[in-house]
Write a protein that binds this DNA or RNA. Structure first.
Lengths: 201, 201
DNA sequence: GTCGAACCGTGACATTTGTCAGGTCGGATC
DNA sequence: GATCCGACCTGACAAATGTCACGGTTCGAC
């Protein structure tokens, strides 16, 4: 019997997937969590064979939780199941030790199949997405550039960001300018969108 | 037997919900579509008793499709099932003739229950969300202000927007300024976010 | 027929933003 | 030790943005 942990913040999605997986004769959902910072504790308690992790979760990113899981419970495989097939996400998932990366666009049948393949030792990755991740290259942004960009997502002014990050306004502008240059965009909003699309934030 | 139409762009979610509803003895999913502009055609073909519509769909908004359905197939009830419980969405859904408004956060059991209640003639609306919709008030933005704001979401410059909407740059700035004023924000990005949060776009 | 509201425009102004050319400092790497 | 790179900073400049006051048209409501 395959024991599954399910981390997904959307209640309806979580419930539907749990119900669906429990219908499989050889699978059983032994833990369900809605927040990223509950994943490790729930896994240590329920001892699943595999963890299905969404990426964008409240509390802690599924990618960070995946890395934690690899050290805290190495016997548990990790399968990332996410809405957004972003190149940077895939790259980070692999670096975090995930065994598979599935986007929620595909048919439901893929899910149980992916679980079985991962448990059989395979790596499950969408071929098109893998190609996109390779062609997109690694994240060109430095840590500080990411910080400044993420602080700019909600329309904060330079003064806001400078205050939040304890930087000079001129420095913030320089980082923003660098990020705009590296993303090949024209202003901070385009830079934010480009960085998000690639999973660089 | 309750015949259900399902409109949802995320394949995994759509499949899981269909499977789940088909498990109910008195329900049957007679049509599944992934795009908003296929809803009416599919409904006229399959003649469902109720249509579950997501709002943010490719092709055509679920809210617009709901209005179409009310005229093309009045016997079919509409239940909006969406990720985002935005006040403006709820208001528009009611104006479009929807019988219910459900957010995907809640437990799956709510879905079948909501369908049955709608078919029984009830209106199904989250009480907290209804209160929020009332307190938020109606959409204060004019049509043109909405146009300009939506054209600004991707970080387009004033010149871009003016070109896309065939307006003078000065006019665009005036509309943006008005939208910023009405939303009580400080710049166009905050205005966009505020308008989106309220479902005014 | 008057009124208000939405629509579209102009011109001028202060502020914010993006760019560029510099400089300091610490930690890798060779 | 020289050389890179990233983290910080400064100052100055042009461009974009946001605000304001003002004008005009159209259209529906009262």
């Amino acid at each position: 019997m395959i024991k599954v942990l399910l981390a997904e913040d959307q209640g309806m999605m979580r419930g539907a997937l749990a119900l669906l997986l429990d219908l499989e004769e050889d699978m059983q959902v032994v833990a369900q969590v809605a927040a990223g910072d509950q994943i490790v504790a729930a896994a240590l308690d329920a001892r699943p064979d595999i963890a299905l992790l969404d990426i964008e979760l409240p509390g802690r990113s599924g990618l960070d939780a995946a890395a934690d899981l690899r050290t805290e419970l190495p016997s548990c495989k990790v399968l990332i199941v996410t809405t957004f097939g972003r190149p940077g996400y895939l790259r980070r998932a692999m670096e975090a030790g995930a065994s598979g990366f599935l986007v929620k666009d595909g048919p439901v049948e893929d899910l149980a199949a992916a679980i079985r393949r991962v448990l059989a030792g395979e790596r499950v990755i969408d071929p098109g997405l893998a190609a996109a991740a390779l062609s997109a290259g690694p994240n060109p942004l430095t840590q500080r550039e990411r910080d400044v960009l993420t602080a700019a997502v909600d329309g904060a002014t330079v003064a806001d960001i400078a205050g939040r990050l304890h930087l000079s306004q001129a420095t913030v502008r320089n980082y923003l300018s660098a990020a705009i240059g590296k993303t090949g965009t024209r202003n901070r909003m385009e830079a934010v969108r480009a960085a998000r699309r690639n999973g660089w934030l």
